[in-house]
């Protein structure tokens, strides 16, 4: 397999998927930042990450400021808008480019391009509010695609939205960045966790239709973000940071895919230890939502097994490529 991707190996017995294994070879980028001057990290982080550079940058700034014991709360508004615009772009990518081909439709490329250009042009609060209005109108005219999600899967733990101070108690073990758990269990982050309180999402969730619930949750998240473009107070709830004692800072930032955590331990003015926990680590944990939901899923043919897996992967929206293998039982 290629380094940097997720290898998903499913065992299929001709009737259902009987086992699933996740192997990650993602490089420990954060570890490579140890020893660098702290100021340089702020320049490096947005260059390192392709998909959510604004969220990564905001998390780096907030955690560094917290590690230095600086008050960063007053400056959270500007990154909050950038983080929200980035998340909207990621959701639209998912809905217009990623999802249609799996539902037997063409990708809606020109619509996506139109939104992408509008998102890029937002320069101030008034433009953000105007775009929020357009987005809300578009969402009102969109019909959430129906999905033949007949599988009912048992409830799994959804990651709550915690403050940075609350997070502090949960990050400890050396392996947390690669294998994060919440209260000792793998947990799911992302649109489902964030919008589990939405009435339509909660109903689907209670019935065990988690694929459909995530789809509805993604629209709910976009509606929330569209309203947030006109209400900065709402958006700043997506960013938080706290000082964890001497020279240590923790930041949590919400992204389209879920909660992103950065923790910096300073060693003088250099990085002593840098920990980044990305949403994909939660959802593709070896005992996480992907494995739990694909295991025992009925599939009459190999093609159906592949399609079930691809839909679930997309539903959980990893930020890296996945290599899928089906093995006969």
């Amino acid at each position: 397999m290629e380094p940097g991707s997720l290898a998903l190996t499913l065992t299929w017995d001709g009737k259902q998927i009987v086992a699933a294994e996740v192997v990650s070879t993602r490089p420990a980028v954060a570890r490579a930042l140890s020893g660098l001057p702290a100021a340089r990290v702020l320049e490096l982080i947005p260059r390192l990450f392709g998909l959510c550079p604004r969220a990564q940058e905001a998390a780096a700034r907030l955690s560094l400021a917290a590690a230095r014991g600086e008050q960063a709360a007053s400056s959270a508004a500007a990154p909050a808008l950038a983080v929200a615009l980035e998340a909207i772009g990621e959701h639209l990518w998912w809905l217009l480019l990623d999802w249609p081909p799996l539902a037997g439709q063409r990708a809606r490329q020109s619509e996506f391009l139109g939104w992408r250009q509008r998102l890029k042009r937002v320069a101030d609060q008034a433009e953000a509010a105007a775009l929020g209005g357009e987005l809300a109108a578009w969402l009102g005219s969109e019909r959430s695609p129906a999905l033949d999600d007949d599988a009912a899967v048992a409830a799994g733990v959804l990651l709550p939205m915690l403050s940075a101070a609350e997070w502090a108690a949960h990050i400890g073990a050396e392996s947390f960045a690669e294998l994060p758990t919440f209260a000792g269990q793998p947990a799911e982050t992302g649109v489902l966790a964030r919008r589990a309180g939405d009435a339509a999402v909660a109903g689907l969730l209670a019935a065990g239709h988690r694929l459909q619930a995530r789809l509805v949750a993604r629209y709910a998240d976009l509606r929330w973000l569209a309203q947030g473009l006109a209400d900065r107070q709402r958006l700043v709830t997506w960013l938080d940071s706290t000082t964890l004692g001497d020279g240590c800072g923790l930041a949590c930032v919400e992204t389209a895919r879920g909660t992103l955590l950065h923790q910096i331990q300073l060693d003088g003015d250099r990085i002593g230890r840098y920990v980044i926990v990305a949403p994909t680590e939660w959802n593709f944990h070896p005992q996480g939502s992907f494995v739990r939901e694909i295991d025992a899923r009925p599939a009459a043919t190999r093609a159906k097994a592949v399609m079930a897996a691809r839909r679930l992967v997309l539903s959980l929206d990893p930020c890296v490529a996945c290599e899928l293998r089906i093995r006969d039982a």
Binding site: E2, P3, G4, S5, R26, P27, V29, A32, L48, A321
Partner: peptide, 15 residues
């Protein structure tokens, strides 16, 4: 600078 180059180049497939 951050890696030995091997993982970073290969990772682009997943990027």
């Amino acid at each position: 600078e951050l890696g030995d180059g091997s993982w970073s180049e290969a990772d682009v497939a997943g990027a």
